[in-house]
Amino acid sequence: MERQLTAARCAVVLVHYNSAGDALACLRALHGLRARPACVIIADNASRPAEREALLTGWRALRRSGGCEPPAALRPGQTPPATDALFLALPENSGFAGGNNAALRLLLTAPAFDGIEAFWLLNTDTEPEPDALEALCERLNARPEAGLCGSSLCYAHAPDVAQAAGGCTLCPLTGRTTFLLGGSARSQLLTADPAAVEARMAYPVGASALVRRRVLRTVGLLPEDYFLYYEDAAFGIEARRAGFIPAWAPKSLVLHKEGGSTGARGGGMPHQKTARSRLMDYLAIRNRIYIIRRYYPCFLPAALASLAGVALNRLRRGQFKRLPLVLRAAWHGLRGRMGRPDSRDIA
């Protein structure tokens, strides 16, 4: 029989890229958790030296104020010490999945972390409330058949408005994703039936998801070919196909600033315009087509046809120069040209 999950058997994994201010706010929130995790590890995706140093300096000061040892800094391939704080400096920006995977490989293979049974993948632009990790553990304990669990995400700039009840739906016809209970009042998250929400969930939002060790052992790590966006959807599909259903912990409340590393702010809230960079636009469209090609190929014609609506939206916004980017992104997704885009892809 599987042991009950507790915070002390969980590790927190953060991926940082040029957002030291957000990351330090997240670390302060983690410092205030009522139940402490076994370890917090930050994988730095080759941030600018000033951002990296600001984060390390701030984290050291935060830990000193709590009477803790400073975080151990290391590079890939180095053996980590038995510690509850690690800073992993990566040589290049390997994307959201690549950064998470670098940290997960270390935690899964180092003997010092054999007792860790679940991994809390958490964005650096989030601020979890004090009971957030305990609530995730409690929900997975109540649902032993579930392999991964999402939090109740609310907007940091509008904390009474829900971004997502744990996860998203995924339409196989178009590749579009929709936040569950997105835009509803925060109070509604605490009164909704979690089982009903879980029945509709395709995958937990990657901004805050607790994943059991056995899921990673069975399914593997996060898919790195997406670079950014849709990797949590693809991982959720793989987990479900392996027999692991997703869960939602309503009382795991996490504030999300959304777009801390990409600069995308304000998206997702009703009646609020989405500020998308060309990089965001390219990745969202390319990866949307690619995920349908990979998992629902019979619906690929419908997914491609749905991009007419995307193009129309760009025209309505006066973004006429985005049309070649939409076509290029769709073509690359169709061809399977994935990974980190270069400047020509988003020109």
Rank of each mutant, 00 (worst) to 15 (best):
A8C: 11
I42N: 00
V215K: 00
A103L: 06
Y226E: 07
Y226L: 03
A330I: 08
A330K: 02
G150Q: 06
A330P: 00
T218D: 14
Y230E: 01
Q78M: 14
L14S: 07
R294D: 01
D225A: 09
I289V: 15
G263Q: 14
W120Q: 01
P81K: 05
A135Y: 06
A29G: 11
Y17I: 05
G58K: 12
E238S: 10
R316P: 03
T6F: 07
R278P: 09
A196H: 15
Q163R: 11
N45P: 08
A305E: 11
A192K: 10
Y17S: 04
A284G: 12
R213N: 13
P70S: 01
R48K: 13
P341D: 04
S252A: 15
R176E: 14
L279N: 12
F235R: 03
G182L: 07
A247D: 11
D342K: 12
Y229M: 03
N313L: 10
A135V: 13
R240S: 01
P80K: 07
P144C: 02
L216Q: 04
L283N: 08
L189S: 05
L14A: 09
T262K: 02
R276D: 15
G266T: 13
L62Y: 02
F320K: 09
V326A: 04
H332F: 06
A162C: 11
A132N: 05
A330W: 07
A38F: 06
G266D: 12
S306D: 13
V215R: 03
M201K: 01
T169I: 12
G263N: 15
P301T: 02
A284D: 12
R48V: 15
F113R: 07
L122V: 12
F119Q: 03
M280E: 15
V12Y: 06
L133S: 07
H31K: 10
D114T: 07
A110V: 01
E129F: 10
R294H: 11
Y290T: 02
K257R: 15
R278I: 11
R288M: 15
G259R: 02
N141S: 13
F113C: 01
L88T: 08
R335S: 02
M1R: 07
W248Y: 11
G260R: 04
V161L: 10
A46Y: 05
G339K: 08
A165L: 14
G266K: 06
E231T: 03
I42G: 00
A103C: 09
A85Y: 10
L88Y: 12
G21N: 08
A142H: 09
H16D: 03
K321R: 09
S19A: 14
G21A: 10
T126G: 03
R322K: 06
R214K: 13
A135C: 15
L62T: 10
R36K: 13
E231H: 01
A46I: 03
P91T: 06
V40G: 02
F244V: 06
A239T: 03
F119R: 02
A249Q: 06
A29Y: 14
A110G: 02
R276E: 15
R139G: 07
I285W: 04
P250N: 09
E51W: 10
R335Y: 01
G183H: 08
